[in-house]
């Protein structure tokens, strides 16, 4: 295994040149020679990677973990946003009325609101009903019955018209809060908005983490390739002495980087897949409890492929960094 490997009989053959001399070398021959060396380098670098299974697996694992982290977080965020999108219950606005508003006035107000064009349904929950409901649901029955007065206000729940978006719902909320009888109007979508902005923050964090980890991957790969170059210094000198060009010397190291990167991407895909598989039962159980048909969504074929391509590109880039820094220093003496 070296910068080339003449014994590699499995390598497909390009055009044969019969007794060709250097001066008769045409473009076609050059192209075939170039292609041939690419094949040799690719196969040889792969062989070298496989010849050291332990250290190669370590490199793959390190790169895999570094790529799996942001990719896994991204998959998690995708799942959450899929989940929050499936919560398509229209926004609700809860109107808490002032304590002194009477039952009759509250019912009047409800009718009045129902007539509005931008309101689809409204429901009146009197303070007595609210107390009853609360008592039966909350388990605070004892505490509540020890209270002198009912602490709960009248409540009117308003659903905005079907075609109103979040902005319109927010506008409606503000309008309703301006009613003199209304103490407070609460848009129940607020938690969803908060979730959405949290997710936005999450995505930015993922990008930042991904940036750092990608930098780390580049450095790791660069260092690995640097060590490979160092350990083959004498070989490189000899190849340069007998006329190997920089491109010729560089090629196998670029392939080494590529194979490390591709392997790392593959490992990352496997890691993400394994963690999802690990979580799947728990999530399915949770979804069943909440009567949701939610299913965890994985990377998918494309996502996995992208990881491998990204790994490969990082591998090439890292190798390129190392090679361009260290190969020129090695000159025959």
């Amino acid at each position: 295994m070296s910068l080339w490997r003449s014994g590699a009989s499995g390598v497909a053959q390009g055009a044969r040149r019969e007794g060709a001399s250097q001066s008769r070398t045409g473009w076609r021959d050059l192209y075939h020679a170039w292609l041939r060396h690419h094949r040799l380098s690719a196969a040889d670098s792969m062989q070298r990677v496989l010849d050291n299974p332990v250290s190669s697996a370590m490199t793959w694992l390190v790169i895999g973990i570094a790529l799996a982290l942001p990719s896994g977080l991204n998959v998690a965020l995708d799942n959450i946003s899929q989940l929050s999108a499936s919560w398509d219950s229209p926004a609700q606005i809860s109107l808490f009325l002032h304590d002194e508003v009477s039952d009759e006035r509250a019912r009047e107000l409800q009718t009045e609101l129902s007539a509005r064009a931008d309101v689809s349904v409204s429901r009146f929950v009197s303070r007595e009903e609210a107390l009853e409901e609360f008592r039966s649901l909350s388990g605070f029955a004892d505490v509540l019955s020890s209270l002198q007065a009912n602490p709960l206000p009248h409540l009117i729940v308003v659903a905005p018209a079907q075609d109103s978006d979040q902005l319109a719902a927010a506008g409606l909320r503000a309008e309703l809060e301006a009613y003199p009888d209304v103490a407070q109007a609460v848009l129940d979508m607020e938690w969803l908005q908060r979730l959405n902005s949290l997710m936005m923050l999450g995505r930015r964090l993922v990008w930042a983490v991904a940036g750092l980890l990608i930098l780390g991957v580049l450095l790791i790969l660069g260092n690995t390739i640097r060590l490979a170059i160092e350990s083959r210094r004498e070989e490189i000198v000899i190849v340069k002495l007998v006329g190997g060009s920089n491109a010729f010397v560089r090629r196998p190291f670029l392939y080494t980087g590529l194979w490390y990167g591709v392997g790392g991407g593959l490992f990352a895909g496997l890691l993400v897949g394994a963690s999802l598989w690990f979580l799947q039962d728990t999530v399915a159980e949770l979804a069943r409890l909440y009567q949701s048909d939610f299913r965890l969504r994985g990377l998918g074929i494309m996502g996995g492929l992208n990881l491998i391509i990204l790994g490969g590109m990082l591998g090439l880039a890292g190798a390129w960094l190392a090679v361009s820094r260290h190969l020129a220093d090695i000159q025959p003496r």
Binding site: W4, A20, D29, W34, H37, G244
Partner: peptide, 16 residues
């Protein structure tokens, strides 16, 4: 392989 090195660099196919 040692002797083949210059030929590999020059791009000869493996039969040659």
């Amino acid at each position: 392989d040692n002797v083949a090195l210059p030929l590999i660099i020059a791009g000869y196919d493996h039969r040659e």
